[in-house]
């Protein structure tokens, strides 16, 4: 069992690297030992509805937005804003009977240009 655990621990960081590159997983998280490789990515989320709605999102949806931000910052595109969108489509929220768009802006380091770039991903519900 000890040998099996060692093999898993040996292989996981390699898998972690692939997930960082393909799914935007934060190198500082999930035990890949990739700390001090890049600055921890900065994530921001913008919500909009079509046609434009009235009012601001309620406290419950704001909490969902924060939860999504935290998860996205750790596990990259494995985290989807589905729960946030569901909250926004509730009767009392601005997304009710409208199309909800969640725009995710992630500031990542581009090794080729050696600058920080913003990567945008949009979800529609």
């Amino acid at each position: 069992m000890s040998a099996a655990a060692i093999v898993v621990l040996l292989l996981w960081p390699g898998i972690h690297f692939v997930l960082c590159k393909t799914k935007g997983v934060n190198p500082w998280k999930l035990g890949g030992w990739a700390m001090y490789v890049v600055r921890s990515p900065a994530v921001n989320v913008r919500v909009r509805v079509e046609p434009p709605g009235l009012g601001r999102m309620g406290e419950a949806c704001e909490r969902e937005r924060q939860k999504f931000l935290v998860r996205r910052n750790s596990v990259g595109s494995f985290a989807r804003p589905d729960a946030l969108a569901r909250c926004l489509r509730q009767p009392s929220e601005p997304g009710n009977n409208r199309t909800v768009f969640v725009d995710v802006a992630e500031r990542v380091f581009d090794g080729d240009s050696r600058t920080f770039a913003v990567k945008m991903t949009s979800y529609s519900y």
């Binding site: 621990l9 040996l10 190198p27 990739a34 001090y36 890049v38 380091f109």
Partner: peptide
């Protein structure tokens, strides 16, 4: 593993 992969990850990410 931590020592080895700390170095290897830095080389792989190229930063």
């Amino acid at each position: 593993i931590i020592m080895f992969w700390s170095g290897a990850q830095k080389l792989l990410h190229g930063t």
